[in-house]
Nucleic acid binder design. Structure first.
Lengths: 341, 341
DNA sequence: CTTGGCACTCGACCGCCCTGAGTGCCAGAC
DNA sequence: GTCTGGCACTCAGGGCGGTCGAGTGCCAAG
């Protein structure tokens, strides 16, 4: 079938171009791959592929280069995620197993991912809203100032200082702490608002102002706002490839990487931990990443609700099968580590 | 005096080169600055300056460029720190005043610094060892697992999970918490080891194993190890200047920036909050930063003990007076903000 | 549908020359 | 002793022309 061969040609072009970083022509293609036909035939196929928008020539009389659309087809239909080798897997496991505490796990993960893929790695901290409350601690700083510390079952800690309308004694703090913990400890953060809605009524009228203020802070700051911590590593990898990557300047990419909000939205599209999501070049919503690709996946304990996302950002010209394999493997192992810790 | 004029010439060369990014020759120099002598005279001075190692030529028949030594002399003798303008100062104050909590202060500071200087900004979190203990909280996760949360007077929070040798009841935790807090609350972290050295003796012999384990974790992990949090912004500024900056490749610089340990050592040299420290090119101990300069200072409440350091990293070809002014101003304002918060 | 042949295109590379900014040196003026 | 104008020299950068070769599109024949 001619259609089949055209796809073979596209696959060969992608693989060669990724490997050599040079536009690939018909002759070198038949030399390197056992396609069983002559260069002239390949040329016809290439012309068709170009017509359909899968490849393009940087200039006349140069070889072909995959377009974003070509990479997309390659990722969807022509490649399979490449599993890591045994030694690689053992290295990952050993490296992550040595971690102490959540921060350490996250930091090791992101560095590991950057090293494995030789791209910029991004790891989102386990999402607060999908975590459960382990404990809510309150520390009385002064009569009208209270520090609230929230500890989740993923080991994450968030704190905030609250200014109170009225003075509050040590006993009041203890009571408030006990009541709140009684209501929400062990429950999902997302459920906290519902659980606590009647709480002020349980207190004497003159204490309600304080209770409401504390509750407001707990809910607003800790539940809604703070999904946003991410960690990054391997930015030096951006300056590694040729000047062709990223259309000559890595500056817009670096700028995009500093906008953590953008990254969070980008990685938010990620589905469950099973599938690896790929966003290629122009598919990216953010202007600065039009010359980049994002490979991401979720990680977490159960197979359904991902706790958070992790992934990498690199040039569109990248080894998708290998990168996807590395991302998937790291996500799985970090899931295991978190489940045990 | 001829010596004076030579210094004037050096100053003019530095200023012109920083402004134009082009090697500066004798003719353009007399045109742009009122030196009162002819180009030929300048040429003699330049030859002398080159002989002494303050300037160099990229190639024969090009203008002169300052060497690291030249920049050093310029910074030490020929320039004065440029204070910020009124509007700039008000903008800083307003931007930092809006911060809520330590994380927000630090994040705003680093972004502000990056924007003001158009360089890569680095801010170290207030040092743990120089802070005082506000409160030590313990949360019982299970019979043999305890989460320890340390809160400092700078608003910083550190947590750790401890595995205990023996089971521990809720009462035991309460007692331990009360005793430890009684000993160290309000004291410098650095003094904590001395204060707690006799603590295990106050407990029944069969509880001492647990107490010692907890103490070991508190001391070792929280006091010794964790001075290391720093935040960075403006890495995109590295890709801004010409290819001449950083000798063509920003990659080693990016790599150095990822090694936070290196940065901490670098910024550790910083003196008090009064003086701004500058480290130029070859003066930097780290290989990857041989083409970069570091401008840093301490920030904190009192004038003697800096809480931590902040600063910027950029090409050796930078506007030192302006940058030093910005760094100093930001350090002062963030000190004020922390003192109030 | 495949293939070999053929003319054509055009970027990369090389050597060439010219230009101009900038230098070093020197002899003379102050 | 210091400054200055003059002069010969150097050399990176840019424009030009020519060659080379990889790669293409098209076509006629298998």
């Amino acid at each position: 079938m001619i259609e089949d061969r055209k796809l073979d040609v596209l696959r060969a072009i992608v693989e060669d171009y990724v490997a050599t970083n040079e536009p690939v022509g018909s002759k070198t293609l038949v030399e390197r791959h056992r396609l069983g036909v002559s260069p002239a035939t390949i040329r016809n196929d290439m012309a068709a592929l170009e017509e359909e928008g899968y490849i393009t020539q940087p200039h006349t009389s140069a070889g072909r280069v995959p377009t974003d659309k070509g990479y997309r087809l390659f990722v969807d239909k022509l490649s399979t995620v490449k599993p890591l080798s045994g030694p690689e897997r053992r290295a990952i496991e050993g490296f992550l197993a040595g971690a102490v505490g959540l921060d350490d796990v996250v930091n090791r993960t992101v560095r590991l991912l950057a090293q494995l893929t030789r791209q910029v790695a991004v790891v989102q901290y386990p999402s607060l809203t999908r975590s459960a409350v382990r404990h809510l601690e309150m520390v009385r700083l002064s009569e009208t100032r209270l520090m609230v510390v929230l500890i989740t079952d993923t080991g994450r800690v968030e704190q905030r200082v609250v200014e109170l309308p009225n003075a509050l004694g040590e006993d009041d703090v203890a009571e408030l702490r006990a009541r709140i913990n009684g209501l929400i400890a062990g429950h999902q953060l997302a459920d906290a608002p519902t659980l606590m809605v009647d709480l002020p009524d349980a207190f004497a009228p003159d204490a309600r102002a304080n209770v409401s203020t504390v509750l407001a802070t707990v809910l607003e700051t800790l539940v809604e706002q703070v999904d946003e911590r991410i960690v990054m590593a391997g930015t030096a990898n951006l300056a590694r490839g040729s000047a062709l990557d990223f259309a000559g300047s890595i500056r817009p990419v670096l700028e995009a990487l500093e906008e953590h909000v953008v990254l969070l939205r980008l990685f938010g599209e990620t589905g469950g931990p099973q599938s690896v999501h790929v966003s290629i070049g122009e598919e990216n919503p953010h202007e600065g990443l039009r010359t980049a690709s994002v490979v991401s996946t979720g990680y977490g304990l159960d197979g359904v609700n991902a706790f958070a996302s992790l992934g990498i950002i690199g040039p569109t010209r990248m080894d998708y099968p290998g990168t996807m394999g590395a991302v998937r493997a790291v996500a799985r192992y970090v899931g295991h580590v978190l489940a045990e810790g």
